[in-house]
Design a protein around this nucleic acid. Sequence first.
DNA 1: TCATTATTAATCAAATTCAGTCATATTCAT
DNA 2: ATGAATATGACTGAATTTGATTAATAATGA
Lengths: 245, 245
Amino acid sequence: MLSEERHGIILREIVKRGITKVEDLCNLTNSSESTIRRDLSYLEEKGQIKRVHGGAILTKGRFVEESFKEKLVHNREEKIEIAKFAASLIEDGDSIYLDAGTTTYEMTKFIDNKDIFVVTNGIDNVDALLEKDIDVYILGGKIKSKTKAVVGTNTFNELEKFRFDKAFIGINAIDIEFGLTTPDQEEALMKSKAIEVSRDAFVLADSSKFNKISFTKVSDFREVTVITDKEDRQYARKLNLRVVK
Amino acid sequence: MLSEERHGIILREIVKRGITKVEDLCNLTNSSESTIRRDLSYLEEKGQIKRVHGGAILTKGRFVEESFKEKLVHNREEKIEIAKFAASLIEDGDSIYLDAGTTTYEMTKFIDNKDIFVVTNGIDNVDALLEKDIDVYILGGKIKSKTKAVVGTNTFNELEKFRFDKAFIGINAIDIEFGLTTPDQEEALMKSKAIEVSRDAFVLADSSKFNKISFTKVSDFREVTVITDKEDRQYARKLNLRVVK
DNA sequence: TCATTATTAATCAAATTCAGTCATATTCAT
DNA sequence: ATGAATATGACTGAATTTGATTAATAATGA
């Protein structure tokens, strides 16, 4: 049996029952425990299921339709890898700023430290984090309908009151000359301030964001670590680059 | 049986009955007392239940706050009628406060005035309003995972800065003596303040909320108009009652 | 109050499940 | 065909889960 085939069977079984035992999956697919365990690890890596002792369960709040929408997102695989690595940087006790955006949203699926405090300006992040039993603080303010990000001067000022251990920021464009830029001025201000009030700031950017320039400057390279899937000597010389995979 | 599976069964049983004995849970899951005790400790740790001598109860006291989804089912028809009427009160140009909660959430579906400004502390309201092209302002603060309501002193203070034309408030309990009460103190404060800073305050309460008393006082009758589906002479004499249907 | 009973926490050993490693089998590109 | 890459199943010691036991604690009623 092909592994893809097994993955399908496993997913369907878990969706159907909500929870499944390794043993049952062995019988269902005529495979060894080792194989099933490998499959479960893989599916968990992809964020499709959650492993528990003895089997696996659905990742909470994952609706079937969502997976269709998600597939449409550009560079999804890369974003997930970047998000996964970023999430792994979070340590117990951290206070975190999580920017609004698709890449940072992917992070929520891989955050397993419950003893953390997350401040976000992304409405979509809230649900995902609550389901993980994580303390969430939403910044107040006007919500941009397109990105569902909270922005504005009040929001900006509210951010001023916090100090974060780590900030995770999404970005639209990276250029070796102009640094980090993004189309919306208000969002740029938010990102910039978040970077400022954080001990460590991480910018998540898949390779498609490179060599682009957008309207508003967010930050110079010096202040942040860029997490990406793109190997690039030039950039590596000028900035703190973390390449995943 | 997997532990995750048991946790689910235990939670469901406690939600259903309000209180459960260790012995019953043993029978229900075919597990030993040791195992059930460990499960209960774990669930208590997560804040999902409270252990008592001989068993466990739900964390909240007299008026158990059902989860958001469960509440949606309860008295749905009536809530929709109430919500529809409440929404019809909104006029172009209004600035509105929309409380977190299921009945107020229903309102979002019937709001068709786009030229309004809505402030809310309910995360779920945001999406629904954005889809209607309505300007939304979310209050900032800690999010209660159970009700997805934003609460806290900062949030309270933020609310202070607004003045609304109309506020729409959900409520858990109405008593002819004690007035409007609700289980969570922080949420009660929010509701109370919202009523205070609004020209007109409307409280949405289906008939199941009547003749009940909860923990924290939200408001006296004088300050608000109660929208309900229940005809009641006694209440009608004491407060401003609007009965729909 | 005190004694009796029920419930609990702590500890232990057995059973189950796990991650990691290895050898073998299969697939793939050349 | 050949070697490299990948997939699989078996095995091992480690980690986790479980139920039984016992001593401590809490509830009950005379």
